[in-house]
């Protein structure tokens, strides 16, 4: 991660004449201990404890007994519905992340202006969708879109984009797009606030210095704002990608993954496997928690590989750049 390099600069002096690492870094370990312990107990251990389920055919009741080895993983990899849900999640992410980040940054830049009157009010407005639980936001949006799609389609029909009312969430051609737009709307506020917090870490002096050097607005943005946001920016991008790939609640509330899998993403696929019943089916078939866990891990491994590959690529590119310079 880009952040690692920054820290190296602030590393304490070499350790040759100092005592052993535990004593030398005593307070560092103390500061990390509660974090490390609680995370191990409530995040990492449960992940590994549930890893065992992937090797069983198990309906979630009592303890798993039907050991089937790695067959769940093989079945996941061979399931076309898993891969189509993967494509939908990827599509959701590829569209949502860049659009949302650009909008959030633009909004943050406008609202960061200390001379802007009522900026608190505007911030509250744009943050509002993010504070409500997704279940509620989703229900309201769904009510509006499905109940009154005829009203909403009128402007589209007026400009000739469509000749009949669109059933946004019920039409397989539009459903995923509708979900993406709502997704952008829903969490934009979060990224806006992150960017606002990030903008505040950039010292005013840097802007002043740039201005004295004769840098214009755009130059100041490129040479001061962008580098200043890099630390937080990397984190925001990373979180936005992970969050989008793992989108669940919003899809569940809006479409349940339908119509006919048109908006099924990986996490709704996993849910449907874990609790039986596909989109809208009664779920009289047995839930398969083992299979769902395997799908879940399989997906995690894909993400891990993709991320590591990305980091490696960045590293290689940097090294080349450095070599050239």
């Amino acid at each position: 991660m880009a952040t690692a390099q920054l820290t190296r600069v602030s590393a304490p002096t070499p350790a040759t004449q100092r005592p052993g690492p535990i004593r030398r870094h005593g307070w560092t370990y103390v500061y990390l201990a509660p974090f490390a312990i609680l995370t191990s107990v409530f995040v990492i251990y449960p992940i590994f404890a549930s890893l065992g389920y992937t090797l069983y055919e198990w309906d979630g009741l009592g303890e798993p007994t039907d050991f089937i080895g790695l067959r769940n993983f093989a079945d996941v990899a061979a399931d076309e519905f898993f891969w189509s849900s993967f494509r939908h999640a990827a599509m959701y992410t590829l569209v949502l992340v860049p659009v949302q980040l650009v909008l959030a940054l633009a909004l943050a830049l406008v609202l960061n202006n200390p001379k802007l009157r009522g900026s608190t009010f505007y911030r509250a407005i744009y943050f509002l969708p993010a504070v409500t639980s997704v279940a509620i936001v989703g229900i309201v949006l769904k009510l509006m879109l499905s109940n009154f799609s005829d009203v909403l389609s009128r402007p589209l029909m007026a400009v000739g984009l469509t000749d009949q009312p669109l059933d946004f969430l019920g039409n397989p051609d539009t459903a995923l797009w509708a979900v993406i737009v709502i997704g952008i709307w829903n969490t934009l506020g979060y990224n806006m606030v992150y960017f606002l917090a990030g903008l505040q870490t950039i010292p005013k002096e840097q802007y002043e210095a740039a201005q004295i050097d004769g840098a214009g607005k755009i130059a100041r943005f490129v040479h001061v704002t962008v580098p200043g946001l890099r630390g937080v920016g990397v984190v925001i991008v990373f979180l936005a990608i992970i969050g989008s790939l793992q989108v669940f609640d919003l899809v569940m509330v809006l479409t349940g993954g339908g119509p006919y899998f048109a908006t099924e993403v990986v996490n709704t696929y996993i849910y449907h496997q874990a609790f039986g019943g596909s989109i809208g089916s009664g779920g009289s078939a047995e839930p398969n928690v083992g299979y769902a866990s395997a799908a879940s891990f399989f997906f995690g491994i894909i993400l891990l590989v993709l991320t590591l590959g990305q980091m490696w690529a960045i590293k290689v590119m940097r090294a080349r750049k450095a070599a050239r310079a």
Binding site: T7, P12, Y31, P46, I47, S50, I242, S293, L303
Partner: peptide, 27 residues
């Protein structure tokens, strides 16, 4: 502690943190 100090085990810790983001918290 992670941002301002280096110490043995820091890299491992960062990797584990990154991985827990990616690994699903399913069941």
């Amino acid at each position: 502690a992670l941002a301002r100090h280096t110490f043995p085990g820091r890299k491992t810790l960062l990797f584990v943190i990154g991985a827990t983001f990616l690994l699903p918290h399913g069941y």
